[in-house]
Design a protein around this nucleic acid. Structure first.
Length: 169
DNA sequence: TGCACGATCTCG
DNA sequence: GAGATCGTGCAT
């Protein structure tokens, strides 16, 4: 299928998180081999007001990439050992991102990063241009469920309970 | 310059 | 239920 273009990523994170379900995440390895995975679980982090979003701390070295136009990769190291793969969405200066939590049988954001061998060098990668990671289109999926996001109890009631986790059935 | 903690996972 | 393990943001 066709590689997703910039336009796809220009919408808000909640919309993109839902639309990413079922899409094909493609990883081209250093040796030229290509792996394809179906995206099965995502989470949306929406703006500076969203206390669960890293951008709630404002513009910092780490969150800088979220302030750019959609289509970029945002990665960060959590608990000193797991690289989280996120897709920046929306317009410039509207910090938002979608966390990839599951691909095929790889369930869990930490495992996804490990499977794809994500590291700091992916920070800022432009998906529509990249030759090592990108996303391809796939038919719309309608059978999915929503749930609260994981591991963000610190965000407070208002944001903790938002149903911004999307899981393919 | 130091410290507490995190969008996690694995093992026991 | 605890440990692994380190970058980041914020206090000092």
């Amino acid at each position: 299928m066709k590689k997703l273009e910039l336009e796809f990523y220009k919408h808000d994170a909640v919309t993109v998180a839902e639309k990413l379900l079922g899409k094909t995440l493609v990883r081209c390895w250093d040796d030229g081999l290509v792996s394809r995975y179906r995206i099965t679980e995502t989470e949306a982090y929406l703006g500076e007001e969203d206390k669960a979003c890293h951008a709630s701390k404002g513009r910092t070295q780490r969150t800088e990439i979220m302030y750019s136009e959609g289509g970029k990769v945002y990665v960060y190291l959590i608990y000193g050992m797991y690289w989280m793969l996120n897709i920046v969405t929306g317009a410039e200066n509207h910090p938002q991102a979608v966390l990839i939590r599951g691909i095929d049988n790889i369930i869990g954001s930490g495992k996804v990063g490990r499977e794809l061998r994500i590291d700091r060098s992916f920070y800022g990668e432009n998906l529509p241009d990249s030759n090592r990671i990108w996303i391809e289109n796939a038919p719309e999926v309608t059978c999915f469920i929503t749930a609260p996001r994981v591991g963000i109890d610190y965000a407070g009631e208002e944001w903790r309970d938002k149903p911004w986790r999307f899981i393919l059935k």
